[in-house]
Computed example of a mutant assay.
Amino acid sequence: MDENIELFSYYQKVRLLPQSELSKTLLELNGLSKSPYREMQRAMLLSLLHGNGDLTRAQLILDGIFKSNDAVNDYFKPAAYFLSAHNAELRRFDEVLEKQNQQLKDAQRRADQLAQKLEDIKTIERQLPSRPRSPIGGSAVPVISSSSSSEIKP
């Protein structure tokens, strides 16, 4: 079977593994001698682990394949370009997600601050002396008419 097809079959198999199994598989793979095929597998596992710095490490492996003048690496370059583009897309999604999470945290913080201010205002209102209620349609403050100019007589 073509090694590139085997790589994509491998990817299809390992992408369903839990994180702990991916880490274990990567450790096992790191113990084996290096070859372009195994380097591609390592890059795939790192892109699936998706932990801190894993995408960067995967990209470094892929860059090594891109920059190599070895004819064996030429065979894997199309798959490496594909995986590199996939990882770039994952990084963009991560950046968008991180930005949205920060916006969500900021909005939640602002909502909490506004809720606290509202509670503070309610507390102040409860501490104010109660005002007499006015009749419907009337005013709570008496209106003094200044239309008549009557003199004040002693």
Rank of each mutant, 00 (worst) to 15 (best):
D2P: 15
D2A: 12
D2L: 09
N4M: 13
E6S: 10
L7T: 04
Y10C: 04
Y11C: 01
Q12V: 01
V14M: 07
L16R: 13
L17D: 12
P18L: 07
Q19R: 14
E21C: 02
L22H: 03
L26Y: 12
L26S: 08
N30V: 01
L32P: 00
K34W: 02
R38G: 03
Q41L: 02
R42D: 04
A43P: 12
L46N: 07
L48N: 03
L48A: 05
L49P: 10
D54E: 14
T56Y: 11
Q59Y: 01
L60W: 02
D63M: 08
G64P: 05
I65Y: 05
N69P: 01
N73D: 15
K77Q: 13
K77W: 09
A79K: 06
A80S: 12
E89T: 11
L90H: 01
L90D: 05
R91L: 14
R91S: 13
F93T: 09
E95W: 02
V96I: 14
V96N: 03
L97N: 11
E98G: 10
K99H: 13
Q103C: 01
L104D: 08
L104G: 02
D106I: 08
A115K: 10
Q116P: 00
T123S: 15
T123F: 06
E125W: 05
E125R: 15
L128T: 01
P129R: 04
R131T: 11
S134M: 10
P135E: 12
V141L: 15
V141Y: 08
I152R: 08
